Simulated scan of single mutants.
Amino acid sequence: MSGLISGLQDHLSELIRGQELPLPALDHSHIELILELLQQAYTGIKADYPTAVAGGDEKHLNSLMVDRLNHLVGDDPLASMVVRAVSRGTETKNYDASRFEMRPDIQISLTSRQHLFPLIVECKLIDLTKGKTVDLYCRDGLARFTTGDYAWTNREAMMLAYVRGGASTTSHLTPFLAAAMGLSPPEYAVVSLPQKCAVSLPDAARSDHGRYFTYVHGAQSGKLPGDIAVWHLWVN
């Protein structure tokens, strides 16, 4: 067992070589540009593939989104100054390498960072008629950021909801997180409730969450990562 643990620590050591964690926060203007790209990509695939958007599963939609996003970045000089490439299901590991073959839905490689530290976008369907609720959105999506499964090197992450029906961040996400915040201790480590951002977009909000795991390797060993800002884009 000790050999296995040592091997996992080797992987962490190599991953964070020369890095001070958590990495510096991204500029808010870059975050809003990426949110706008996500919205534009969804609007495009909705127009071109309405059947897929109306009835496809998350994997199908994510694949369409990744391909459309890469086309948008390639065609937009401003976007290409911020985004290097977009990928889907690239293998990663959690904060202590105890979970080793994890695959976030969408990873956005940025020109300002090494590609080893992408912006993570976790995607979920919101379809109340089929049991795809905000509870699942948080339990199987948002929680990955608070527990150190995803984006543990970063100060920010994104959640993308494919909404079928009339749900919104205001009507569903904010009340759910408000209830979670009232628990002791707060569920999902809610520090601040969703606040509207990217005013040009129909439904984008930011919430902040605590993270209570500690880094386990390198100069940051034993250090808390601090809060993470999560941007929520709900597209309908």
Rank of each mutant, 00 (worst) to 15 (best):
T170E: 15
T51D: 10
H209F: 02
N154E: 15
E20L: 07
A229S: 12
P185Y: 08
K59A: 12
D57Q: 09
D149F: 11
N62L: 04
E58Y: 07
I228T: 01
L15S: 05
F100R: 11
W152V: 09
A179M: 13
P194G: 02
N154R: 10
P175I: 00
A167V: 06
G3A: 15
T170P: 02
A143Y: 10
G18K: 07
T90D: 13
L142K: 00
Y49L: 06
A219W: 05
L61V: 05
Y137R: 01
M158Y: 09
Y137K: 01
A167F: 04
R113K: 09
L177T: 01
S168A: 10
G74Y: 04
R211L: 12
R144P: 04
Q107N: 07
D135A: 13
G182T: 05
S80A: 15
S80T: 10
A25H: 01
T214W: 02
S2A: 15
G165P: 05
N154W: 02
I31H: 11
T174M: 00
D48W: 02
S63E: 13
A151I: 09
M181S: 07
Y95A: 12
T146L: 03
V73E: 08
A198L: 05
C197P: 05
S13M: 09
D76T: 07
V230T: 12
V86I: 10
L201I: 04
E101F: 14
C197H: 03
R84C: 08
S80L: 10
N236H: 09
G141C: 06
L78R: 14
L142P: 03
P50H: 00
S29D: 14
L21W: 14
M158Q: 11
V53S: 06
K93P: 02
L136K: 14
I34E: 11
A85L: 05
A205N: 01
L21E: 13
R155C: 06
A179W: 08
K59R: 12
H60S: 11
W231K: 02
A205C: 04
W231H: 15
G222Q: 03
